[in-house]
Amino acid sequence: MIFQILLILVLLILGYFVGSHLEKKHYQSIIKREEMLRDIPAVASKILPPGSENFNQVLVMGNVTISVDYFKRFLAALHNFFGGRVTSYESLLDRARREAILRMKEEAAVLKATLVLNIKYETASIYKGGGKAIGSVEVLAYGTAMIPKASIDAV
């Protein structure tokens, strides 16, 4: 009994420190890369802008799976009991969405696209199977990259 409580405590402390360190580092990387890819807007609109005949369209996507640390999961279980916002998962999903968009934009940047249209998200939770398997979330972002024909000609 005491051993179990100690184990949980150690896992909680470990989960908290390692988890928040990794999250901080991830956010720093996200903010830096978002700044770098700022000149490629990603838009949800389905309508091709005027002048689109000068662009080639290619499907681009970015996919990420982020796992939840022990501390966040413990907190979420408590939230499950009391109700209310599951605050510990908010940053997790925020990171996953932004990372997926970034990876999509990185693909678009390689293709020399100047715009990504009609972007959409797909999310999936990966915890089915083992009863106590650690939960993780997958986010897939995809859209239509608009590549100016001139840049292709130049290559």
């Binding site: 908290y16 928040s20 501390f71 966040k72 907190l75 408590l78 605050t87 925020d94």
Partner: peptide
């Protein structure tokens, strides 16, 4: 993201 320190939430819950 809701701006609450996770440890505070943890302590309350």
């Amino acid at each position: 993201v809701t701006k609450v320190h996770p440890l505070k939430t943890f302590a309350i819950l």
